[in-house]
Design a protein around this nucleic acid. Structure first.
Lengths: 257, 257
DNA sequence: TAGTGGTCTAGACCACAGC
DNA sequence: CTGTGGTCTAGACCACTAT
């Protein structure tokens, strides 16, 4: 086991915070490397001379910071960083669609085997915010495409896309398989040549459902991206995505006007 | 107190998870509105017939999800959303500099009173990643500007900017007050006309220091933005920012090429 | 002073992984 | 079977807020 100090019962900070700090420093120092086994609860309570709940509180602190993952029956480990995918706006380039690649395929190139599951396509009303972004009347219908993206079998992103039914009707957009180049290719075939995109990026903690669907360890926030695709004649599609934050870096560039 | 169910001791889910779920639903339903007082621990343990640690575990779950904030001696409350600031790339427009406004002033316009504190300006070596982005030799020096931004007295963002000393030397960039229009105005005055910016966006949980500096409640991640400013002759500045995620939405737009 | 959440103790039993 | 983390109990004392 690594070297650890003691708790100072007279100090201002609570014992569990002192223990958490010592373990956190061991991790950030590199004395405990990613993937390394953390001291067991038994070792810690003996070393520090505290009750088990006290060491558990320290470990829970580190889990909520995303530094440690615990596995029942096995032990606790310093969290390892999954492969990070850098997403540039280039992934929506027309050349990828022309080559038959949807954006997720283009952005995953060379990083693993992309796949999609739990795909649901439905017709109905859009959430108010989406309807507004698409400039639709309140009774207008949209096609919603709900799915989960995986790389090498690991879920990385949840996405829901909305396309006005007036555009999607009679096209493969209403089918599970939208065909080569993805839904953007189909939208352009309908005569709506895409001219630009906007994205709104934010971060928050996942809901329990999102945490399960993305298999997120404790202390892992999600990045949310709300993208609107614009054609010459206005907005034609909105996508909401929820991404596992440890798996993504989003890249943007813009001119200095 | 609001209506709550009971715990099913025979169920798969642990009692504390059942209690957390019931309270979470009360919040997402709207039966408990933002700012509303949560049931006290005493009320919950009597209602459910469990030990205090069990209700505390449920409440801790909700805190780590960012739904609830507890205040010692006062009670626990449904978290309220702070004002959100939408940041568009327009905030770096030259017109703002020409009007004497730094980007933070421009982006805060009409949203409160902006201020800056804990400003430290130092000269020294840059982190490897920054040096690389600036295309500097390993022994090259930079000016680092470290500060905290506040709106109406509430901290919202930490930032560190790096400018090669070869550009900053002899300018107000090395002073605490960089003058009207901020450091980008000074860099342009040195003959480096800015042409574009790149930003890398990611999210993670804050370190304890960041949590304190930004006064973040539990369950609040940070957004990190790494921005590079480019002049015709190459990169001239790098800024790393750490933003309270509940206070920001980042907006980008890009052409469909 | 009463009520709230924060921390700690010293046990107990359970679920799961690995030998 | 042993060792690990997960959950629960039934107390205790403390720090802070509000009255």
């Amino acid at each position: 086991m690594i070297e650890l100090g003691q708790v100072d019962r007279g100090a201002d900070a609570a014992p569990f915070k002192q223990i958490a700090r010592q373990l956190r420093e061991a991790i950030t120092d590199g004395r405990l490397e990613p993937g390394a086994r953390m001291p067991t609860e038994q070792q810690l309570l003996e070393h520090y001379g505290v009750a088990r709940m006290t060491v558990r509180q320290a470990m829970n602190q580190l889990r909520s910071e995303g530094l440690v993952v615990a596995e029942q029956g096995r032990g606790a480990f310093v969290r390892t960083a999954p492969p990070v995918r850098r997403l540039a706006s280039e992934r929506f380039a027309r050349k990828h669609r022309d080559a038959g690649k949807a954006a997720f395929i283009a952005e995953t190139e060379g990083l693993g085997k992309p796949s999609v599951d739990s795909l649901h396509v439905t017709e109905g009303h859009a959430p108010d915010r989406v309807r507004e972004l698409l400039g639709l009347r309140s009774n207008a219908k949209v096609v919603s495409r709900d799915r989960r993206y995986l790389v090498d079998g690991t879920p990385v992103e949840l996405a829901t896309s909305y396309v006005p039914l007036s555009i999607a009707r009679g096209t493969p957009i209403t089918h599970e398989d939208p065909g080569p180049g993805g839904i953007y290719a189909r939208i352009e075939e309908q005569g709506h040549r895409l001219v630009s995109f906007t994205e709104e990026v934010a971060a928050r903690m996942p809901s329990p459902e999102e945490k399960r669907a993305l298999r997120l360890p404790d202390g892992t926030p999600v990045l949310t991206v709300l993208r609107v695709a614009f054609a010459e004649d206005g907005p034609v599609e909105v996508t909401e995505t929820v991404k596992a934050s440890h798996s993504f870096v989003l890249e943007y560039s813009f001119p200095a006007v």
